[in-house]
Amino acid sequence: MYLPQNKDGCLSDMTDEELWLAVQQTDCRASFAQLFYRYWKTMFTTMISYTSDKEKCEEIIHDIFISVWQNRKKAQIRHFQHYVKAATRYQVVEFLKSKKRSKLIYSADWELHGHRSEYNEGESKVDLEDIKTYINRLIQDLPLRCQEIFILSRIDNLSNSEIAEKLDISKRTVENQITVALRHLRNGLGPLISSILLIIIFS
């Protein structure tokens, strides 16, 4: 399996606080992906009921999670569920304002009952493991040279120049093959899931 794995295999059993600490202190992409899977469906369901705009909902979720990942070292997030709830509400209100429709955002789905987040742990674990397996299958479907270049780039973190030198090919060839691989993964995964995971896991 190509994707980085949690050593004890129990990411789904960790609290939001434990996952977020791992993200901040060790840049753990797997922990961040777990947080993404824990909340994106609820965020989407809440937003779609107010916006009726699937593409906009996906865009908002994408922006929220990418912003959190990019600012993980300095973000002061004490309770992750509180944060995504507030961020989602703010973004939806801004969207409604832009549509000249003012509306208060309330949702029973977002009511909190203590600090432990409410989600289906079994479903979250299955989703994450399933998508990892599927991504690896997609990678294995690539032509061998394309697969090799992609792994060297996104898994081994080699620069395009280093890959070109290692494989004795041009840098342009490396760039083209990575583009082919990313397009293949996006087509196989869909726009929202692929954009988050490709940036978080393969960044």
Results as ranks from 00 to 15, higher is better:
residue 3 L to G: 11
residue 9 G to D: 03
residue 10 C to Q: 15
residue 10 C to N: 15
residue 11 L to G: 07
residue 13 D to N: 09
residue 13 D to S: 13
residue 14 M to N: 03
residue 14 M to V: 04
residue 15 T to M: 11
residue 16 D to Y: 00
residue 18 E to P: 04
residue 18 E to K: 10
residue 19 L to P: 03
residue 21 L to Y: 13
residue 22 A to M: 15
residue 25 Q to Y: 06
residue 26 T to F: 08
residue 29 R to V: 07
residue 31 S to F: 14
residue 33 A to N: 10
residue 34 Q to A: 08
residue 34 Q to V: 09
residue 36 F to W: 00
residue 38 R to V: 02
residue 39 Y to Q: 05
residue 41 K to F: 06
residue 41 K to A: 04
residue 42 T to W: 12
residue 42 T to F: 06
residue 43 M to T: 01
residue 46 T to M: 07
residue 49 S to C: 13
residue 52 S to T: 05
residue 53 D to S: 04
residue 53 D to W: 00
residue 53 D to P: 02
residue 57 C to G: 06
residue 61 I to W: 02
residue 61 I to K: 01
residue 64 I to E: 01
residue 65 F to Y: 08
residue 65 F to N: 09
residue 67 S to T: 02
residue 67 S to W: 10
residue 67 S to L: 06
residue 68 V to E: 08
residue 68 V to F: 12
residue 69 W to I: 04
residue 70 Q to C: 15
residue 71 N to A: 13
residue 71 N to F: 00
residue 72 R to L: 09
residue 73 K to R: 05
residue 75 A to P: 05
residue 77 I to G: 02
residue 78 R to E: 08
residue 79 H to Q: 11
residue 80 F to L: 04
residue 85 K to V: 09
residue 87 A to Q: 06
residue 91 Q to E: 03
residue 92 V to T: 05
residue 96 L to F: 00
residue 102 S to L: 11
residue 103 K to Q: 12
residue 104 L to F: 13
residue 106 Y to S: 06
residue 108 A to D: 14
residue 110 W to A: 09
residue 114 G to A: 06
residue 115 H to Q: 11
residue 116 R to I: 15
residue 118 E to N: 14
residue 119 Y to Q: 07
residue 121 E to R: 15
residue 121 E to I: 14
residue 123 E to N: 13
residue 125 K to Y: 13
residue 126 V to M: 15
residue 128 L to D: 00
residue 134 Y to D: 10
residue 136 N to S: 07
residue 137 R to W: 05
residue 138 L to V: 03
residue 139 I to P: 04
residue 143 P to R: 10
residue 144 L to F: 11
residue 146 C to D: 15
residue 147 Q to W: 13
residue 148 E to K: 15
residue 148 E to C: 08
residue 150 F to Y: 04
residue 154 R to W: 01
residue 154 R to Y: 02
residue 155 I to N: 00
residue 157 N to T: 11
residue 159 S to V: 09
residue 159 S to L: 01
residue 159 S to C: 03
residue 160 N to F: 14
residue 160 N to I: 13
residue 163 I to M: 12
residue 165 E to R: 13
residue 167 L to P: 06
residue 170 S to N: 02
residue 172 R to C: 10
residue 173 T to A: 14
residue 174 V to C: 02
residue 175 E to G: 08
residue 177 Q to M: 05
residue 179 T to R: 15
residue 180 V to G: 02
residue 181 A to I: 10
residue 184 H to P: 03
residue 188 G to R: 12
residue 190 G to P: 11
residue 192 L to V: 02
residue 194 S to M: 05
residue 195 S to I: 05
residue 196 I to F: 04
residue 197 L to N: 00
residue 197 L to C: 03
residue 197 L to G: 01
residue 200 I to G: 06
residue 200 I to M: 03
residue 201 I to R: 01
residue 203 S to Y: 02
